[in-house]
Design a protein around this nucleic acid. Structure first.
Lengths: 150, 150
DNA sequence: TGTTGATCTAGACCCGACTCTAGGTTCTAC
DNA sequence: GTAGAACCTAGAGTCGGGTCTAGATCAACA
């Protein structure tokens, strides 16, 4: 019925080591139960939380903040405002990241286009003038992209 | 005419320490020039590159990859295909990040809404039944959000 | 029965990306 | 001519987030 740490590792994408590390760091809502032999057993709820937890992490929430959140959860009802505040802050943070990445993406696309054009021209040069391609390319670079040599 | 390291730090948002560190790590296209007294001087081109560099970093390109890229630039014309490949890979990586963040954002918004509703109901409870608000809240939590206690 | 493989704990180690320190030089202003 | 700010180098330290190791236990199979 319960899941072993190995199964949870496979299904969550986290390593066995990371799961034990997360537990030490207090990132589980409920203390992880053990079999009589001391081995950890997890359930589907743990997996669901780990999925969320992984999303929070990969979207830039530090473990220490995840711990704050889970501590509020552990305290039980009554602190929903604080939890909400925490979630809203992260929501905003994620929105900011998306905007910044979109900005970066625009820059990347521009640079990719510049290089594509440059290469197209470079190869055209080679076709028209196959005897000294290096010189032709150097000329192209100098004349056409002084501010975009990087 | 040239910019001191302090000015560049201010204008780039990087620390003076980080600028020296970046130089050691080989992240500048051109070797940083020095005054006769050994002090670094930068120019506007350096600032432009640092702006790009900062975007690459904050969008998840490791310094070691930025170095690879700048080494290609330093080698001069002839390796545009490699540079393009590198840029395209990062473009893809940024696109992936955006998609993942949008996914996370949807989850965050859902959770925020659930908490907002929960709190609205909790406060409604208090209004209808101000004599035992904690019990009312606990009941609400148990009955309405068993799978969303986190 | 003995080996293989999964698990356990405690604690050391690693990596990326800075950040800071110590000890020294140089510039600027008073 | 001296204080204070800005700079220099080499190298140590920090921090987040894991990862790995050693040495032990336990289950299951041949």
């Amino acid at each position: 019925m319960g899941l072993s740490i190995g199964e949870v590792a496979q299904r969550s994408g986290l390593s066995v080591h990371a799961l034990r590390f997360y537990e030490r760091e207090g990132l589980f809502a409920n203390p992880v139960r053990r079999l009589s032999n001391g081995r950890r057993i997890y359930d589907e709820e743990d997996l669901e939380w780990l999925a969320i937890c992984t999303k929070l992490r990969s979207s830039g929430m530090p473990l220490v903040v995840i711990r704050q959140y889970i501590e509020l959860v552990r305290q039980g009802p009554g602190n929903e405002h604080e939890r909400l505040e925490l979630l809203r802050q992260h929501e905003t943070h994620v929105e900011t990241q998306i905007r910044e990445l979109q900005d970066t993406l625009a820059v990347m696309r521009l640079k990719v286009r510049i290089y594509e054009d440059h290469i197209a021209r470079g190869e055209a040069d080679r076709l028209w003038n196959p005897s000294h391609p290096a010189a032709a390319q150097a000329g192209t670079q100098q004349e056409c992209h002084p501010p975009e040599s990087t």
